[in-house]
């Protein structure tokens, strides 16, 4: 099966700071892959490369089989992402933002209106439908961002820490949306700091450390935390820390 999202030996540095080091990952249609790692491990950078927001210095990125910087029209219609800032303008209401996102993602006016209503309901944003997004709490802004990224039912989705600011109900809502999208055949890549949360939503968990994938964890298995720290420790032991070496 052709991967919908793929990074093949991608490396990138920001001036003197290495961000990605021979980073490889694949996500196939219908599966949810979670990246887990410390702050600064390279998860967000990897996602930015996949979304076409950063040109890596080495390696290959593929989004639905195409270079992410060359995705347009029909292929772009099949992709959605939420990395850092959402596709939501503070001056527009929740409904206006989601409808604009739907139109910008390629839906016609009639389809965009229906999809907007559906995703606002799916993410439990109805009470704030007419509120300006600048007035929303951080958690609701995050839900709005997810709504804008998924309103057009994309086939490839990249979500950077989608539940970080959400309350328990919001976490369940987003988890249900991710699982429903995967069940419909979407390839989904998420990142998180929370092992128990990714264990509930992911089909595979990859551990990212020092800009590379250093191992995998089995979702649902016991003692994930201990296994995670073992993988990170083994990675540190195998590869001397360049900062400490200098």
């Amino acid at each position: 099966m052709t991967a919908a999202l793929e990074l093949d030996r991608v490396s990138h540095s920001f001036r003197t700071r290495g961000a990605l080091d021979d980073f490889s990952i694949v996500v196939h249609p219908g599966e949810v892959v979670a990246m887990i790692g410390f702050n600064g491990a390279g998860k967000t950078t990897a996602m930015r490369v996949l979304a076409g927001r950063l040109r890596p210095s080495h390696g290959t990125a593929r989004l639905l089989g195409r270079d992410p910087h060359d995705v347009s029209g029909r292929n772009a219609r099949r992709f959605g992402h939420l990395i850092d800032a959402p596709l939501a303008h503070p001056d527009l209401t929740v409904t206006e933002n989601v409808r604009s996102a739907a139109r910008l993602h390629g839906l016609d006016r009639a389809t965009a209106a229906g999809a907007t209503t559906a995703v606002i309901g799916q993410l439990a944003l109805e009470p704030w439908a007419d509120a300006r997004s600048a007035a929303l709490s951080q958690g609701n802004r995050q839900r709005l961002g997810i709504a804008c990224a998924t309103v057009h039912s994309p086939e490839a989705i990249v979500l950077d820490e989608p539940t970080s600011a959400l309350d328990p109900r919001g976490v369940v809502v987003v988890r249900d949306l991710i699982r429903a999208s995967a069940a419909s055949g979407a390839a989904i890549l998420v990142s998180s700091h929370h092992l128990d949360e990714v264990s509930r939503v992911a089909d595979r968990i990859v551990v990212v450390h020092g800009g590379r994938v250093v191992g995998a964890l089995e979702p649902g298995s016991t003692d994930l935390e201990r296994r995670f720290f073992e993988l990170v420790h083994d990675a540190d032991t195998r590869t001397p820390d360049p900062e400490r070496a200098s």
Partner: peptide, 18 residues
């Protein structure tokens, strides 16, 4: 500056069109 331009990447509507 806010990152909204980044969110406009990879859409059916190109950044050039925006």
């Amino acid at each position: 500056a806010s990152g909204l331009a980044g969110a406009r990447t990879g859409m059916a509507t190109s950044r050039a069109g925006v």
